[in-house]
Amino acid sequence: MNRSLLSVEDFSLSYGAVPALHQVSIRIARGESLVIVGESGSGKSSLGLAVMRLLPRTARMTTGTIRFLASDGTSHELTTTDATILQRLRGKEIGMIFQEPMTSLNPVYRIGDQITEAIRFHEALPRTAARDRAVALLAHLGIAEPERRMAAFPHELSGGLRQRVVIAIALVCNPSLLIADEPTTALDVTVQAQILDLLKRLRGERGMALLFVTHHLGVAREIADRILVLYAGRAVEEGPAAAVIAHPLHPYTRALLQSVPRLGMNKDEMTLPAIGGAVPDPAQVPHGCAFAPRCPSFRSGLCDAAPPPVTTFGENRSVRCFRAAELAA
């Protein structure tokens, strides 16, 4: 049996008439971590939300399927499965953490109640046992005095602590897949590092698969087994994290990597190259390659003529660029 835990096939999505994702496919095996990298507006958050079917009402799925393999061996098409099955999977099999720890918690309930609420609806566990599990989890997530924190309200906690609580809510039922939508973006740099370390550690301990969405390649490098680069709603490159970062195949990935500062850069390198132009208006993506107008390797008559096909390199790398082979050489 080599079935993926999560497989998104050919998935397209639009908000009203504006397309957000265009025929994106991803596969995540049990215990694997896939990081989706992209700029604002690339559609990366929509992908995570689509798996949970938490997209805003204006979103319309136009093509594709999202299949999830539950722990009991049944496979579910998440875009069409009925609401009760979805409720059983959400929180229990798939946990999700969000970008904004300041607003992701309900301000009127105590932390403890918000964590045990998830257990209550998924497991027939006595109240005290649910509480004990929540306390133990908070302690495990590095929260001091977890007993006391259980009685706190969200506004009494710092951003870092709140994000740990959001993580606790997502993990309390031991999901096999964790979706993290820019979980560190709203946090201080030091807290970011702590949360990333925490997620890495948890993944190691629990063998949990991770779908991690970020705009930050440095973060991706930290936590990814594989990286998928999204541009204007299209997957432009995918491969093992180390390989993608060491030898990017798509000009966009390369440009992104060049714009990340590194420790030990000397003075001449201090001016980071920026990518010229801006992400295309989703309603008017160029007919050919979406990145063509900003691409340093653009070739007229080729790149603007038709959408580029997927080119595969070796067993597990793929790129959507006409000139990938020639540029890789």
Binding site: G91, N106, E117, F121, V166, I169
Partner: peptide, 24 residues
Amino acid sequence: DHVRTARAKGLPESRVIRAHILRN
């Protein structure tokens, strides 16, 4: 946002409406 968190927990919709929307 916290309503989305509540749904992500897998709560039944009636619970989401009562405890996380109306309550607030």
